[in-house]
């Protein structure tokens, strides 16, 4: 087994390089996805029929097709239309657009679980709908959505491995390369898996701390459940 640890140790620098790329991809995709999701959510909850229809179609298309196909369309297909991106940029965009569909679904559910009286009270003191949403509805909905959002974030972190398919140099692609040059596939993918596990564990812990830090008495996943939301 000493052979394994020496091998793992020797492989670590390359895999950690990949981890940095994966984390960068993940952070950018989550941020971009978050922004797109907010727009989609606004269209679906507060938009007119046209905006609602467009946003709903978006969500259905991105949830109904595999991420790897979306990545291929963006990286291999869009150049036909004259849109050329680096593999990293294409992976970021694909993951962001994919994640936006899921994040938007969670946001919508959370917003709709906030009692309508909150919006009415905000409007009654003279807030515009936009002000009421950003001041009253979203801060409550965002607190409620953290547990679901955390699941989505962790899922996306693991999905960075799919970017291997369009040759982004993340963890899995490094592992694959090392595996091919040494034929120690079993060991290298065990090491890769441990790195993924370490990352998801840390992220889950951090998000859990945030969840508890921003928790407000009477508001949160537990309160939502009690209210039958």
């Amino acid at each position: 087994m000493t052979g394994f640890f020496a091998f793992a140790w020797d492989s670590l620098p390359a895999l950690l390089d990949g981890a940095v790329v994966a984390l960068g991809l993940w952070v950018l995709a989550m941020i971009l996805g978050f922004v797109v999701a907010l727009g989609l959510t606004w269209c679906r909850v507060y938009g007119n029929r046209v905006l609602y229809g467009l946003a709903t179609a978006y969500v259905e298309v991105f949830r109904g097709t595999p991420m790897i196909v979306q990545m291929f369309v963006i990286y291999l297909g869009l150049p036909d239309l004259g849109i050329v991106m680096s593999s990293f940029a294409a992976a970021t965009v694909a993951m962001a657009f994919n994640s936006a569909a899921y994040q938007a679904e969670y946001f919508r559910g959370a917003i709709q679980s906030i009692p309508s009286g909150q919006m009415v009270a905000a409007r009654a003191i003279g807030m515009s709908r936009f002000d009421a949403v950003r001041t009253v509805v979203l801060p409550q909905a965002m607190r409620r959505v953290i547990p679901q959002w955390s699941n989505e974030a962790i899922l996306e972190l693991k999905f960075t491995s799919i970017a291997y398919a369009i040759s982004v140099n993340e963890i899995t692609s490094h592992a694959y390369e090392i595996g091919y040059s040494t034929f120690r596939f079993f060991e290298i993918f065990i090491v890769a898996a441990v790195i993924y596990l370490a990352m998801t564990t840390v992220v889950a812990q951090v998000l859990d701390v945030i969840d508890r830090r921003v928790r407000v008495p009477g508001l949160g996943a537990q309160a939502a459940e009690r209210a039958g939301a």
Binding site: G117, Q118, A121, A122, A124, G126, V136, P139, Q140
Partner: peptide
């Protein structure tokens, strides 16, 4: 309406305080 509402107090049956 927003400017007008800002000068009209409204007290609700179930309070509707902002929970957060």
């Amino acid at each position: 309406i927003n400017a007008i509402r800002a000068t009209i107090g409204f007290v609700f049956q179930d309070f509707n305080l902002f929970t957060h």
